[in-house]
Design a protein around this nucleic acid. Structure first.
Length: 410
DNA sequence: CCACAACTAAACACAA
DNA sequence: TTTGTGTTTAGTTGTG
């Protein structure tokens, strides 16, 4: 999936003078407002560790993930504070950990690069940005305005970017079949527009796109095991032992994403904040079978979905035509009982609070398949990611201990 | 060079 | 009428 990865900040995004000097770390440290701040309490929360990372790279996607997503997703929360906070001290420490010869200048240098990254266009496609925004919302659904806000908050680049990006966001929401419009009748009775949520069917695709974007090594989690996965099987993260911790950081974020997309977690497409239940077999996931692979990475899907030329994530846009047709056919308020039945059959749609009706185009419904075998893989992948993140968390804790010891000595 | 994905701009319609 | 939203089309750019 070259285009996504290719849209790195250092490509067409580094527009000199495009951005003014901003608050710098606002996008990084301002994540305390995230409703998912509780994520910081998980072992993943402390899994930002740059020890051993070779900071010689350019402003790559990995760095972007570190400087924005990872800190947003894993360090957000109570400990996420502006510069001067322990968090930021970690960042400074990060600079000093780059090597024995590192000095305070290297720390400031890394901060400067963070600032630069914030001034650069995110390496994520609009689809992924929207996805992240929606996934970060408590209700897993957001109006466009809040999607704007989320993007602005976490990617300050857009605050100074021309307003065309909003058009692109709307364009993506409209055209990308990964996103679904939700009736706003319930909840927010007022306000323009509808809520948008992520189609749970395509959430794994988005996750995979996200993984592919910043962490190609995550493929190891998506490759079928030599033997059927079992509880006694060694965690597949062992396959990644050669990976740097930086990549593991990304794994932590990916794990969170995976968990968000884990089976049972999309109990309701727009209210997936239900408890994670990995035991549920009712999910689709990255399939090892290209024929079954609905995912972003599926070459077959890319081929068959190439009809759509304008949609982001258009490899997922296979049903876009149907969607548009259904919309144009006057089925704007598409809400079939058939869909409800389908959801009921899968044991979902049974949340405590009633959710807005979702317009599920018929063309998409046919693609809803239950893949229990893939669920196992997802569970293992998520478990491995969490395991790895846990290891990293422990290492981070050790690192902090050593650091505090040094400080005490001083 | 080509196909494709992603981005961008623009226009239009609609509703608050 | 204004503004925001949603949709659609067309063109551009970068990558493989």
């Amino acid at each position: 999936m070259g285009p996504i990865i290719g849209m790195s900040p250092d490509k067409k995004t580094e527009i000199p003078g495009m951005q003014e000097e901003r608050t710098g770390l606002r996008g990084v440290c301002g994540v305390g407002t995230l409703p998912e701040a509780e994520c910081a309490s998980s072992p993943l929360a402390t899994s930002v560790d740059r020890t051993g990372g070779t900071e010689d790279e350019e402003l790559t996607n990995l760095n972007w993930l570190h400087e924005n997503l990872l800190q947003n997703f894993t360090l957000g929360g109570p400990e996420a504070q502006p510069s001067g906070s322990p968090l930021f001290d970690i960042e400074g420490d990060y600079g000093s950990n780059q090597g024995p010869s590192s000095s305070s200048s290297s720390s400031s240098h890394s901060r400067g690069r963070e600032r630069e990254s914030l001034k650069s266009k995110p390496p994520f496609s609009f689809s992924l940005l929207i996805y992240m925004a929606i996934e970060q919302s408590p209700s897993k659904s957001l109006p466009v305005k809040e999607i704007y806000g989320w993007i602005l908050e976490h990617f300050p680049y857009f605050s100074n970017a021309p307003t065309g990006w909003k058009n692109s966001v709307r364009h993506n929401l409209s055209l990308n079949k990964c996103f679904r419009k939700v009736e706003r009748s319930l909840g927010k009775a007022n306000g323009k527009g509808s809520l948008w949520c992520v189609d749970p069917e395509y959430r794994p695709n988005l996750i995979q796109a996200l993984k592919k974007q910043h962490f190609p090594a995550a493929h190891a989690f998506c490759t079928p095991p030599a033997s059927p996965p079992s509880a006694s099987s060694p965690p597949r993260h062992l396959f990644l032992q050669g990976c740097s911790f930086k990549e593991s950081d990304i794994d932590a974020a990916t794990a969170m994403m995976l968990l968000n997309s884990a089976p049972g977690h999309h109990v309701d497409p727009c209210n997936s904040d239900s408890p994670l239940d990995l035991s549920r077999p009712d999910s689709v996931l990255v399939s090892s079978d290209p024929k079954q692979d609905h995912n972003y990475s599926s070459v077959a899907l890319q081929r068959c979905s190439s009809r759509s030329s304008s949609s982001s994530l258009s490899s997922l846009d296979e049903g876009a035509c149907d969607r548009r047709q259904s919309r144009r056919a006057g089925s704007e308020g598409f809400h079939s009982d058939e869909d409800s039945d389908l959801w009921d059959e899968r044991g979902i749609h049974q949340t405590s609070r009633r959710l807005p009706a979702i317009k599920w185009p018929a063309g998409k419904r046919a693609r809803r398949e239950i893949k229990p075998e893939l669920d196992e893989e997802l569970k293992e992948a998520a478990g491995s990611l969490l395991h790895l993140a846990g290891i990293r968390s422990c290492m981070e804790g050790s690192k902090r201990t050593v650091k505090s010891t040094k400080l005490n000595r001083k």
